[in-house]
Amino acid sequence: MGLQILSGEDNEFAALQYRKVFEKNQHVIIITRDGEECVTKYKNALEKCSAETDPFDIVLLDFVMPKKNGVRVAKEILDLRPHQKIIFASAFGNGVLDDASAILKDSIEILQKPFSLEFLVKKIENACTFKSLR
């Protein structure tokens, strides 16, 4: 069964590509265009799932987004579900990402742009496999 993925990505082309590549790999992806929409979609999904499970296998967030930035979205999601797996995709350099990872939990992974779509899919699939093994 495919993975349930929530993506916060304001670049319409990147969002389109995520949709194409994840759907090709039998995964379900919900695309949101800003931070507020992303949190809303997460909360909506949360209402529909049980207390033990996370509403999404992976939340894929851009670092810079309108209305709410990626770090703020991640914090709000982690407040709701502390074990939710989150992956950041960002074009910022190491310095900024290190600062961000310092204020977020260790379970959060950061992917530095640019990366290939194939790499992204594998990364997310591996992360979910590792999570399920734990």
Partner: peptide, 26 residues
């Protein structure tokens, strides 16, 4: 840092377009 981000951000979709076109997914 911001400038680097602004310049690098559009690169990801460009690579993505190339990748998808190569695979015939787009």
């Amino acid at each position: 840092s911001e400038a680097s981000h602004e310049l690098k951000s559009p690169l990801n979709p460009i690579y993505g377009f190339v990748e998808l076109a190569k695979c015939g997914d787009m």
